[in-house]
């Protein structure tokens, strides 16, 4: 147990619920497989966010079950068989909801962290 904790210290723990948002957002740019999603999140976050497979796959399967994404086996650009996930119409709506929720949350947190900025704004 102790060893594990040390390993995680270099990374930022994802807030509860934000992984879904990141996955949906990643799929906004086109269908992607699980490995591709984790690589995309890592690259776009400048290696700060590393998605644990133990969280990624349950999340993918959960979103699939909610019918926000759908899965399909295809051949990848490197000629490998992979399971691609793709946003559904409901998933796009969900993404919009999640995004606005997230911006509200980040505004709120920013407000708490920088109270004076908030006061000066009319």
């Amino acid at each position: 147990m102790a060893e594990k904790k040390v390993r995680y210290q270099n990374r930022i723990e994802l807030l509860q619920g934000t992984l879904d948002l990141l996955i949906l957002q990643t799929l906004q740019w086109g269908p992607q497989h699980g490995y591709g999603i984790s690589v995309a999140i890592r690259n776009r976050s400048g290696d700060l966010l590393q998605v644990d497979t133990g969280s990624l796959y349950p999340a993918l399967h959960r979103l699939d079950k909610q019918k926000w994404i759908k899965a399909e086996w295809r051949i990848s650009e490197n000629n490998q068989r992979a399971k691609f996930y793709q946003l559904t119409a409901a998933g796009k709506k969900q993404l919009t909801r999640e995004r606005s929720k997230w911006s509200q949350l980040s505004d709120a947190i920013a407000g708490v962290l920088n109270p004076f900025e908030g006061e000066t704004k009319p």
Binding site: H33, Y35, G36, S76, N78
Partner: peptide, 17 residues
């Protein structure tokens, strides 16, 4: 079986990269 394949393909791609 599907998930086993998914995990295998994940690992394959990672190895290839």
């Amino acid at each position: 079986e599907d998930f086993d394949a998914e995990v295998r393909s994940h690992l394959d791609m990672a190895v290839r990269d």
